[in-house]
Amino acid sequence: MKDRVPVVGVLALQGDYQKHLEILDSIDVRGVEVRLAEDFDRVERLIIPGGESTVMTELLGRLRMEDKLASFVSKQPVWGTCAGMILLASGVNDRSVKTLGAIDIAVDRNGYGRQVFSTVAPATLALNGHRESLDLVFIRAPRVTRVGEGVTTLLKCGDDPVLLAQNNVLVSAFHPELTGSALLHDYFARKFAADFS
């Protein structure tokens, strides 16, 4: 019998959450929008998408989702892309964003500059014995400025870590949901365990 694939929630307050759901659908993973606190009970893993971290911070507070989110990210597998990475970090250079401290990294919001500095960079990613070339899409991306002990860097772009993991938390500064590749979604939904070390 095939292993059952966990239900993956996508935080659906603001941003490109539909893009993540489309990719999950394309690899036969059940994706669910998480729009209220009770929705966390229906999912086993969570993706926090790209968008604006200030807006997500505001809405998480207004819709009283902060406690449930904090408890979810303390134990269940969770993956943050771009704005999601900022929310999961332990520190950010912007007081209007409330970080969860789920992964021991510090980031600079829009650390590479404004939209004219957004870019696509080719890379080769090795994960679980698979090697795949993929385009890394950086959009007003956060820049990792400190990597704590116990955090593993899975991919660098130039000198900067852009894909990192610690325990149950995976973060990427780029947007895998905007490229054709489902490699990372497949990895997160099917392989990524809550004990990454």
């Binding site: 603001q14 893009k19 870019t119 959009i139």
Partner: peptide, 21 residues
Amino acid sequence: MDNKKDLMTVNVGLAEMLRNG
């Protein structure tokens, strides 16, 4: 980055990030 296709990817990408806002 001068490639037109990549430029469109990041520019439409920013529009995607502004969705639901």
